[in-house]
Design a protein around this nucleic acid. Structure first.
Lengths: 224, 224
DNA sequence: TCTAATTATGAAAATTGTGTGAAACTATGG
DNA sequence: CCATAGTTTCACACAATTTTCATAATTAGA
């Protein structure tokens, strides 16, 4: 199977790398560009880019300009990254044919979800909506968790956390890793916050709570 | 980010330069060797070569020979360059563990594309997640140690220590070396502390504890 | 065999990591 | 603005780990 290509345009290489890492993990091929003109070069050199993620704030040529240029040739889906929610910007974006709009800071999960959503709309992306393991099933689409056929009530973070655990079952996850995946990338809070969520998760999961194991001195692990 | 190192081996400097130019443009660091033995020298002098591009036709030691030599020590990806498509050659190549096979003359685009594809493929499987030796297996991802199929419970340091031993099996390790690798480099504690950990490790490992040998006046060694 | 050096061992002390509950803080919808 | 649910912080108790230390056992070499 051919991977879908995503072009990430941002002047900060750190941000590019961050986005890239998550997309690569989801099995996308990621191309990078550090500024507007480079983005155009890369885009026209590759005929099969499936989606573009574009930062608004860039020196030289800003995101809007790049978007305009590309739109005059192509209908490729474009996601805009902006520093904050600004209605005027958003309006301008949709007029230019921006498909989505993500405000920084965003959680990598959100980003990936949006990318998948758009690509599903335009192209075909296989999606595993349901994760099942050890009597626990997660319906990502419905945002519902079922244990032994019984629905349990989880908060947003609890849901995200359990999903992350189950998507990485059998793998010991450090607190840092968990923070970087389930929380926003710029979250610098207390890692102990994870403990609290794990506690609540375990208690809501009843017996099955034992499936979330503590890896002493390291973090946690889900194991059926 | 560090550039990935690619070693280009060809007796024709013109060809080396050609390949090098394209890879440098793609932000790789390129090392060169003009014949087989030089290639081996360069390879072993650099511990972090990410990929080797190897011409088959070379005087003295040909590409197959070089490939064999390197394969006996390393799984580094190898791309072979041959003068024409020759099925016999291709067969031999894959038996030797060649990752790709490019027929001359090739377009530089093809070359670069193959290089990227391979590095992307291997980068994801980069880390050896499971180490196995003498009935002991370490799953670094899950942070789990199994002896003869049975999981044993190790603390964080014990796990690190055993991993270090097994990654250096057959090598006598001084206490200083162990401290520098398993502990932080700025650890100034008692080197005797290692003894204690070795003791606990040995006892937790049961019979297999004997595999950690004492090297008198020096340190320890793992040997299966 | 004897000695000096080195390593093994067990137990106590020091350190570090985790579970937990409560309180503070945030966001959201009336 | 309040009420509510969700999220984060914090501190304390407790548990597990790591380190230290004194003593016993072993080794190498004279």
């Amino acid at each position: 199977m051919n991977k879908l290509k995503v072009l990430v345009v941002d002047d900060e290489s750190r941000m590019r790398k961050l986005v890239k890492d998550f997309l690569v993990k989801q099995n996308y091929e990621v191309l990078e560009a550090g500024d507007g003109s480079e983005a155009l070069d890369v885009f026209f050199a590759n005929q099969d880019i499936a989606l573009i993620i574009l930062d608004v704030m860039m020196p030289k040529m800003d995101g809007w300009q790049v978007c305009r240029e590309i739109r005059s040739y192509s209908k490729v889906p474009i996601i805009m990254l902006t520093a904050r929610t600004d209605e005027r910007d958003e309006l301008q974006g949709f007029q230019l044919g921006v498909d989505e709009y993500i405000a920084k800071p965003f959680s990598p999960k959100i980003l990936v979800a949006r990318v998948e959503a758009i690509l599903r709309r335009t192209a075909q992306v296989a999606e595993d909506v349901v994760i099942e393991c050890g009597g626990i099933s997660i319906d990502k689409a419905a945002h519902v968790v079922t244990i032994d056929g019984k629905t349990i009530d989880l908060s947003f973070k609890e849901f995200e956390l359990l999903t992350y655990f189950m998507e990485n079952k059998g793998i010991a996850l450090s607190r840092e890793k968990i923070l970087n995946s389930v929380w926003n990338y710029d979250y610098f809070g207390d890692a102990r916050t994870i403990d609290t969520h794990v506690k609540k998760l375990r208690s809501k999961m009843g017996e099955k709570g034992d499936l979330i194991k503590t890896v002493w001195g390291m973090g946690y692990k889900f194991e059926a």
